[in-house]
Design a protein around this nucleic acid. Structure first.
Lengths: 214, 214, 214, 214
DNA sequence: AATGAATGAGCGTTCATTCAT
DNA sequence: CATGAATGAACGCTCATTCAT
């Protein structure tokens, strides 16, 4: 999997080149192309409102072709989820083995922020289709990832308010991705600001003042 | 169940009483009952996955009966939205006429928290069905409510980080409602903690220190 | 039945006055108003595509009110048919008692032309909804009227070609009503021209030359 | 059954053979069979009253199968119209390039008569479902065909009565197809008689006397 | 003279899925 | 590696009709 391109797509190569491709060149990467198009449409219109017909048409193949590559519609989104959330799995794994210090948590927030924006269409999708996703396999997977993050970022013995602060830090990152798209500021500045607030929150959760942050 | 609300809106009272009612008693409140059951199902399973057949069956009427009371499926959710978000509309109206001080904003956060939990199934629904809701009429309505809240809580001239803090306060309240349901703490304590974090965020956004909060 | 107004409406009075009527004035003539609106809509959109809801809405009454005045949807169109085709019934009756001369037939053509344009919306409706009308009661009625007309205008012993000429005269009148609406000529001139061609046809059917016509 | 038409259009051959066919034999011609059955039912009962369920049942397939071959119900009738009215389109094309003489027009009448009877179920359908057809795509198509015919058969500078004669010739052919079905004469004789009257009408429109016809 | 509330049947359409080729 | 053809289940919606009040 050459997925470390950082663009957020399933693969970088076929992202925009869908128009002029010959039948030749397409051979062998149909699975990828299905994933790319599916994610695009799922994120744009939601899971239920995206039909396999639509995906197939956009790829100029038949619906039956999709079934050659994926056993069900659900498996398409599952495969995307598995491919794209590996970094977060890794982050949780890493987090578990670190001491529960402020510094660790600040690092986690940073890495989480990176992971989120690397797979932002998927996360946008997860966020906007919670009701649907809940009774798909990825619903459970996503939930367990979230709980994993929670466990490495909130200290169960801490004051409840501080626990909330940590959860809030996580949600600030999530929300930041989508809400700030709509405010007319430079995306880079926005991301930095969001990150600062999130870091601040975990810092405060550890009794820290503003100075000790950043 | 604090069901003596007297607001005329969708009440919680009849929520589970669908079984033993006589045909007599049911007359005249069918519209309400449709709203109640619909909200329950929409919140539980999502908008798309809740069919009119399902709603009708649960009420022991035919699908056509629903159409006597609502012109379309969409109109059901629109009516719920209109009935249940009036308090937030009022809050925004009120907020616009206040001076933009910290105190005002703390007050807004408190009132917003109350409004959210008064209509929490609806908000849960909105949150979990964003993709669907986006191209329903309520999508636009919700968005304009959100922007209204943003306008009365964030100061466009403030530092970007402080703006984010304010938005984050809002989202902390939203997220709080659903995430904390899953943590095993007393709901009352949870709400208080969430509220404190939110208030803290707007306080900090106004250059305040922790002491001046609460 | 004061229906000899010549406007083609079921009654002349309520034809265009539907807007400003008070509840008072409306009393007692609802049946008429239903007929008027129904004919208007049936002619405009067809029988199947005009729903009782639509009729009721346009009259600002409920569907159930229609059922107070007419037992079924079909009965509405039947009542219209009966009211408006009486002149043709009478014409057939008259025709049967006349000698089968050219002069008689010319007279019949004239009278038929008048009858058609007196009830033109109904005939337009019949013409454009034959498939539907066929298994309504009026289907049989209409057919028997047509056969009646045929019997008084075609001579069963005549040459087949001459028989066709007579039938064609009838259809020329029918078609004339609708086709010529679309040609940009003065309606009066058009009617006269159509009438002349029809008269010519029956004249020729009786071995007549052009000169003996008109 | 003169089914060796070789036109590639909807053929008459398979019309009644729906019962004993094996699944094997059916493969590959389902589209045709849908067209055949649909036309039969549309002509018999009308467009609105023929449901897709009915068509599907008579073919022993599911409704969904129809949707594999046609995007909508409307598309079925459109496809029939396109397939079956090509000869008339061609006739109009041909007519436009001829000199506007009596001889040409007599020829047009003959050819039109042939075209009509080659596709008589369709034309019966069009005639009997005008109200419905008006707001289907074929409504416009049909109208433009009719205007095309009018343009090649009526001379806009001629006397109005003569114009009507030409239009009447056309309608005589139309009406002839359906009305004469009901008269108890040999169909061949009937067609000839209708044709003669139509030819007569255009001949007279050109100042011709009976002798110069035939 | 009319309404409010509801029904039962049906409609056109869409969907995820299957399978022989 | 993929298509062509089809299915079964469901969906949102509309309609003519009924009936107690």
């Amino acid at each position: 999997m050459d997925a470390t391109d950082g663009t957020g797509g399933t693969s970088g190569a076929s992202g925009t080149a869908s128009a002029g491709e010959t039948r030749q060149r397409r051979r062998g990467n149909t699975r990828q192309r299905i994933q790319d198009v599916a994610l695009e449409l799922f994120a744009e219109q939601g899971y239920e409102k995206t039909s396999l017909r639509e995906i197939a048409e956009r790829l100029d193949v038949t619906k039956a072709a999709l079934y050659y590559h994926f056993k069900t519609k659900e498996e398409i989104i599952v495969s995307l989820f598995e491919d794209l959330t590996r970094p977060i799995e890794d982050l949780i794994e890493w987090g578990r083995q670190q001491p529960h210090t402020v510094e660790t948590k600040r690092e986690i927030i940073h890495r989480y922020s990176d992971a989120l924006s690397a797979a932002s269409p998927l996360f946008r999708f997860m966020q906007e289709n919670q009701a649907t996703v809940r009774d798909l396999r990825i619903g459970q997977m996503f939930k367990s990832r979230m709980l994993g993050m929670r466990d490495i970022i909130v200290d169960p013995d801490a004051d409840l308010v501080d626990q909330v602060r940590c959860v809030s830090a996580l949600f600030t990152l999530h929300a930041g991705m989508f809400v700030l798209r709509e405010m007319d500021v430079d995306p880079k500045d926005a991301r930095d600001a969001v990150l600062e607030v999130a870091v601040d929150l975990v810092t405060q959760a550890h009794g820290g003042s503003k100075e000790s942050g950043a």
